[in-house]
Nucleic acid binder design. Structure first.
Length: 843
RNA sequence: GCCCGGGUGGCGGAAUUGGUUUACGCAGCGGACUUAAAAUCCGUGGCCUAAAAGGCUUGUGGGUUCGAGUCCCACCCCGGGCACCA
């Protein structure tokens, strides 16, 4: 790799006197050098082993880079720099996730085209990122709003459509009746419109949906194959929400119709005293002719549809429903006729959209039953055991006897009032009851997920146009792939229409097109994709960012993928991570991603903690407590900011900014600078032995800590070393160790170390040097401080050789006055000896 | 309500995974340098006690152990996520 050193490289001879540390000057100088030489370019298909280090690409908002972005970028920049020094071919790319609402809202307000705003913001972000000395490969920069990029986002959508994984459905959207605008979930704050504060209602719209539910099982199972923090895995599993149970068929009396019900508690089936359907349940339409109070029912359904989920939840406390008169269902276990209701508290999209209500053993059902005076049958008796203390179980049993309690017993137990299943335990009964009913086809094992299909339509402007065409004769068809990208047309008004449609509807010249199949007049889809669309596959494009013929070459993917280390915010642990894993799996299924690659895109995922403002309050413009990286760099320098952000606290933990604390980081670098200056004067050849030993321990510590995300302790060990170096009166560091020290520090403070490297006289870059190795024989201790305890309490310390045998140490310890005092007059019963550490006398 | 994280000096946090609690940094205090200040350097930093000796101390209470910040049980508090999921 060609390397252009700056003109002014001073030789060691001329730098006897090191000038004052001036980060602003040296940082700008080296950043220019790196930029000019395209210094951190990743090499495709190199013989070297690869390492793909990825940070989440930012949304370039007008506010500029946040210190939180820096935390993530600097940490993985350190990893990337270390990997390069370890001889790996590193891919460390950056790009822009630039479609989205804030830019669009800004355009609505100002009339400035989002493209222009985006351009300005990305330039701002880029300048700030460069001023941090991050080693991104800028030659691979991508932007989701670039037609050359979203061409392929659209292409993926078409592939999904071809595989029946994209479909249209009528789905309620959040609707602000005042602004007359469809709102994204993020724009609904506590059930109100973000801008006008009006209560948000629901409005049904035809929307494109992606069938992510088809991948639910794989998205859970394949988590076994990846190295994610356990809490992230738990979050994903909870989000998908798998639950195993049974569907049970309830016959409608005197009518050829059945209603399926999903339950995880088949053991309570004898206690099912009514059915409840979700208001939108399709059975209602089918049974219309038999329903005596249909008008009333219909009105209830209409009302329910208008409400938002939040509103429903609030009202549900008092469980309102409507009985469907004229029809009854039959409980298959005892052939009893039971009433049917519709109620808000049953959700259409979960299970079968209908439940069997067991008021004795489900709190919600109980509340409902009490309100409508429905019968409550106890069918599960708690098992008396240690887990139920006798006092409380006694009172519980007493109150349950009367069935007057407001508390449903929701646990498992032994069956009662359940015919031939009486006396059986819940677990057993579940199996037996299902087996019994399954013989007549009345029950079937089933799995239900909380995960819902992904609403992929936004009635907005600033997003990727969905590449679909509607023909009156042929229905929905995908745009021909040769026409991609379907470019976002220019509009006069960025605001959605009165009816809540995308402003694109008004661009007739764009909307009107021809059917790709029958050539008759047809219309383009005017909805655009959500902001997740571009980000769910961007890491794949980095492998081959300029490919015009295909989404990416398989050869390059095979070389670079999978991502070896992906860091991002905890807020993306569910949606972004889940969506992008889904899209990856899909691309793998259709062989766009080579089969030889694994089924997961990210080998290892980590999350950085949020940085709060001083005093632990969230940084926000309105509170005026935003720390801008630019300001910090101006005042202290980028290397100081980098060191401070790594030192501030445990990487994964939320932490508050401390304006005073940053001084410590600067002082540390000043100290290194000063010590280097001393070195240039003395030009030592050998390090003093103690310092050398500590240095090798430091290499070990820093090397290991970077791998395990302990950047804070890595920095503190470097500080500790610099303190020892400064205190050393026996000659300080020799040349080899001085060089190695700069190398170990270089990922943290790339500018300062590069400058000092030049001052030694090197024309090459320190960032191409080999990562130092520690000498294991050197860090081995010969002398240890033994702890002397009496009865487990520390009573003294003894310096001795680490290998000292028990007997010898015992003698030594017992000869000390301090120790003798505690033992005198007592008998030593036992001696505990931990080699190299401690001795403890038990009396 | 459920699921994760977490409670250690004045503050941010360390602690080799059961073996010196408080590394490193901030703040404080004392000193050196300086006409002075800043910067820098040296020293000092848990609490009780004038000091020594000693005692106490990792949210609270109990337990296991020669020995617990670390393991077990119960509880309290803080942060985050999910929440009518049948």
């Amino acid at each position: 790799m060609a390397y252009n050193s700056p003109r002014k490289v001073a030789s060691a001879a001329t730098t006897r006197q090191l000038k004052k540390y001036n980060p602003q000057r040296i940082e700008r100088k080296w950043q220019r050098v790196w930029e000019r030489g395209d210094f951190y370019r990743a090499k495709d298909l190199s013989k070297k082993p690869k390492s793909y280090i990825l940070v989440e690409f930012p949304y370039p908002s007008g506010d500029g880079l946040h210190v939180g972005h820096c935390r993530s970028y600097v940490a993985l920049d350190i990893v990337a720099r270390k990997r390069r020094m370890e001889g790996l071919n590193v891919l460390f790319p950056m790009g822009w996730d630039a479609f989205g609402l804030p830019t669009e809202n800004y355009a609505i307000k100002t009339g400035i085209h989002p493209r222009i705003v985006t351009k300005k913001n990305t330039a701002f972000f880029k300048r700030q990122e460069k001023s941090l000395g991050l080693s991104f490969d800028w030659s691979r920069e991508i932007n989701t709003t670039d037609p050359a990029y979203y061409k392929w986002t659209q292409w993926i959508f078409i592939q999904l459509f071809k595989k029946n994984l994209a479909y249209k459905a009528r789905i309620p959207i959040n609707w602000c009746p005042d602004c007359k605008i469809g709102l994204a979930n993020e724009e609904v704050i506590d059930g109100r419109c973000e801008r006008c504060g009006k209560r948000v209602t629901k409005k049904e719209k035809e929307q494109w949906m992606l069938k992510i539910t088809k991948y639910a099982e794989r998205l859970i199972k394949d988590l076994e194959k990846v190295d994610y923090p356990e809490r992230v895995k738990a979050l994903q599993k909870d989000w998908i929400g798998k639950s195993e149970g049974t569907t049970i068929k309830f016959q409608i009396s005197n009518f050829k119709f059945q209603i399926d019900v999903f339950t995880t508690r088949a053991d309570t089936l004898f206690g099912a005293t009514f059915l409840v359907l979700a208001p939108e349940h399709p059975a209602i339409e089918s049974l219309k002719s038999k329903i005596r109070n249909y008008k009333f029912v219909e009105r209830y359904i209409k009302e329910a549809r208008k409400k938002t989920e939040k509103e429903r939840i609030i009202e549900i406390r008092n469980k309102i429903g409507v009985e469907i008169k004229g029809i009854k269902a039959v409980n298959p276990v005892n052939n009893r006729e039971i009433q049917i209701f519709i109620a808000d508290y049953v959700l259409l999209h979960y299970g079968t959209g209908a439940i069997m209500a067991v008021p004795a053993h489900d709190q919600r059902d109980l509340n409902f039953a009490k309100q409508y005076n429905l019968s409550i049958i106890d069918v599960i008796k708690p098992i008396e055991s240690r887990s139920y203390p006798s006092t409380s179980s006694g009172s519980r049993a007493a109150s349950r006897d009367k069935l007057k309690s407001d508390q449903a017993y929701e646990g498992e137990g032994v069956l009662i009032n359940s015919g031939r299943f009486n006396g059986m335990k819940s677990d057993d009964a579940k199996k037996r009851i299902v087996e019994w009913l399954a013989r007549d086809g009345k029950a079937k094992r089933a799995v239900s997920y909380k995960l819902r299909d992904w609403i992929f339509s936004r009635q907005r402007y600033w997003g990727e146009p969905i590449p679909m065409i509607k023909c009156q004769k042929c229905g929905w068809l995908s745009a021909p792939e040769k026409d991609l990208p379907i470019e976002l047309p220019r509009v006069k008004e960025y605001k959605p229409t009165e009816k809540g449609e995308s402003p694109l509807v008004k661009v007739k010249s764009w909307v009107n097109t021809k059917c790709p199949k029958c050539n008759s007049p047809a219309e383009r889809e005017t909805d655009v994709m959500p902001n997740w669309a571009g980000s769910n596959w961007y890491y794949l494009r980095y492998c081959d960012p300029r490919n015009k013929k295909s989404i990416f070459s398989q050869k390059l993917l095979k070389y670079w993928m999978p991502v070896d280390w992906y860091n991002g915010g905890m807020e993306h642990a569910t949606l972004h991570l889940l969506y992008s894993r889904f899209i990856y799996k899909f691309l793998w299924d259709i062989k766009a991603v080579p089969r030889s690659l694994g089924v997961e895109p990210y080998k290892k995922r980590t999350s950085h903690g949020v940085i709060l403002g001083e005093g632990g309050i969230k940084m926000s413009k309105s509170k005026g407590n935003v720390i801008s990286p630019e300001q910090v760099i101006k005042e202290y320098g980028a290397d100081t900011l980098r060191i401070y952000e790594m030192f501030i606290g445990p990487f994964e933990q939320t932490i508050a900014w401390d304006a005073k604390g940053i001084k410590g980081a600067r002082r540390f670098l000043e100290r290194v600078w000063r010590l280097a200056g001393q070195f240039f004067v003395t030009q030592n050849s050998q390090s003093s032995p103690d310092l050398k030993k500590l240095f090798h321990k430091t290499i070990k510590k820093v090397s290991e800590d970077i791998e395990s995300l302990k950047f804070n302790t890595a920095v503190s060990s470097l500080m500790e070393f610099s303190n020892a170096w400064q205190a050393d009166r026996r000659g300080g560091l020799g040349k080899k160790d001085f060089k190695d020290f700069l190398k170990v520090l270089s990922p943290f403070a790339p500018h300062l170390t590069q400058e000092l490297w030049g001052k030694i006289g090197f024309k090459s870059s320190i960032h191409n040097e080999k990562w130092p190795k520690y000498d294991p024989t050197l860090i081995k201790e010969e002398i240890a401080t033994f702890i002397v305890q009496v009865q487990g309490r520390v009573r003294g310390k003894i310096e001795a050789e680490i290998e000292i045998p028990e007997e010898k140490l015992k003698k030594l310890a017992l000869s000390q006055e301090k120790i003798k005092k505690w033992i005198i007059g007592k008998k030593i019963k036992k001696t505990i000896f931990i080699p190299g550490k401690l001795i403890n006398f038990v009396l």
